[in-house]
């Protein structure tokens, strides 16, 4: 892929990921547990993993975390999202590259959502020096399965549709 085309595509993807995280913040969460959210921006991460390389995925995740925490939050929000984002990116990349015979896009997305939540709660317990925060882990794992399923189906529809175009 040409450098210019790649640059444009990555920027487009980044802006879409940012819009999705803003849209997500409008959706109320029924569970009062910190860290439970839909993870819509993960749809974009899945698309990048499917069509582009490892380095592009990391660039996108880091930039997304940086920009979302600039828009709303601050340094502690950045730490939470970067920990979850990088851990889930690593898990999803490994599953996609090595185990895509065993896992579909839905499974990879569930694994990503779960590892995102685990990374976040780990950072939360380290920052607050409070091990009891890990008591939220069961709820976070369940919510990871549900949101990961939803995001996974969305991404697989999007990936199928994009395969029919000649964008990538």
């Amino acid at each position: 892929m040409k450098t210019t085309k790649k640059l444009v595509l990555l920027s487009l993807m980044l802006s879409q990921a940012l819009v999705l995280s803003v849209v997500e913040s409008w959706i109320p969460v029924p569970v009062p547990v910190p860290g439970v959210k839909l993870g819509l921006a993960n749809i974009i991460t899945m698309v990048i993993i499917a069509f582009m390389g490892t380095a592009d995925t990391f660039i996108l995740v880091v930039l997304r975390c940086l920009l979302t925490s600039m828009f709303g939050g601050g340094i502690s929000v950045f730490l939470f999202s970067i920990a979850g984002g990088l851990l889930s990116a690593v898990v999803m990349l490994v599953l996609h590259k090595k185990f895509s015979r065993v896992f579909s896009v839905v499974g990879i997305s569930i694994a990503g959502a779960i590892s995102h939540n685990i990374g976040q709660i780990m950072v939360a317990s380290v920052i607050m020096k409070e091990i009891s925060v890990l008591g939220y882990l069961p709820v976070l794992l369940i919510s990871g399965i549900i949101t990961g399923c939803f995001v996974g189906f969305c991404s697989s529809f999007l990936i199928e549709a994009l395969k029919k175009t000649n964008i990538f």
Binding site: V102, S104, V106, G107, I142
Partner: peptide
């Protein structure tokens, strides 16, 4: 669309969650 690994993943994580809830109670 769903593959074998997906089901295994969901079942394994659910089992972990149930074990965690039992331990917490």
């Amino acid at each position: 669309m769903i593959k074998k690994g997906d089901i295994i993943l969901i079942v394994a994580v659910s089992a972990m969650v149930i074990a965690g809830i039992i331990g917490f109670n």
